[in-house]
């Protein structure tokens, strides 16, 4: 396997078959793809095309049926559950459609959660939380609980949580689907800016045309296969 130091994700003949009500469903049918560090890429396709399954496989959230996945030069498809857990904590930030913040924790606690798992000291955590809150425009809201925030604000917290430990990959699954178009645009612009300033790789799973427009690369999936891989100039 040839591995370029610029390569962040490599998949080789990736396949996933589900058993759904006794029927086998081929969600991913053999995907070979390379995603480089610093990309701002959208994975698009109709419902059932395999976008979310692809996300789950490259992040180790789901086991694959066949093939291999390398992330940050590590073969994650062979990792144990515990190794995957640590690997995800240190290398991947997640942004979900439904925000998925921990409802009993404040904004600050939600953001520092991963750093706590990593064993980062209190001073450093505090400094990083304040910086990221400034970046996402939520300086005055660190002591609020998620239920006291709007959808857009919650998604900003989710982005801050995903980015604060500086992972190499941010996986954003339909991040703007629950937001109005104005808030969605603001968030997208913010992520684009963060991508440019931090060099973190952003990978979106989306139906949102706006994300497709902003993305520098758009990969279209259909029936678990890559239909089109378009890199914009």
């Amino acid at each position: 396997m040839e591995y370029n130091e610029n390569n962040l994700i490599i998949t080789k003949d990736l396949k996933k078959t589900y058993k759904d009500n006794g029927v086998y469903v081929n969600a991913i049918n053999g995907i070979d793809i390379t995603i480089n560090s610093g990309e701002f890429t959208a994975i698009v396709g109709p419902s059932g095309s395999g976008k979310t399954t692809f996300f789950n496989l490259i992040s180790g959230l789901d086991s694959l049926t066949y093939g291999k996945v390398w992330l940050n030069s590590k073969l994650i498809s062979d990792m144990s559950g515990k190794e995957l857990s640590d690997f995800r904590r240190d290398n991947i930030g997640f942004v979900f459609q439904a925000y998925n913040l921990i409802p009993v924790l404040t904004v600050e606690e939600n953001i520092e959660y991963i750093m706590l798992l990593q064993g980062v000291g209190k001073k450093e955590r505090h400094k990083k939380v304040l910086n990221i809150l400034r970046e996402v425009g939520l300086e005055g809201m660190r002591n609020r609980v998620p239920t006291k925030l709007s959808g857009g604000q919650q998604q900003r917290v989710a982005i801050a949580r995903a980015m604060v430990s500086e992972p190499s990959l941010i996986l954003a699954d339909e991040p703007t689907a629950n937001l109005d178009s104005k808030t969605g645009t603001e968030l997208l612009n913010m992520m684009r800016r963060l991508n440019e300033t931090t060099g973190m790789t952003f990978l979106f799973s989306t139906h949102d045309k706006m994300i497709m427009e902003k993305a520098r690369r758009v990969i279209t999936l259909k029936d678990g296969l890559i239909e089109k891989d378009e890199i914009k100039a």
Binding site: S59, L61, K82, S85, D86, R88, R89, D90, F94, F96, N100, I102, Y113, I114, L117, Q118, R161
Partner: peptide
Amino acid sequence: VLKAIGTK
């Protein structure tokens, strides 16, 4: 979600 973000 907790497991996804790295909780053991």
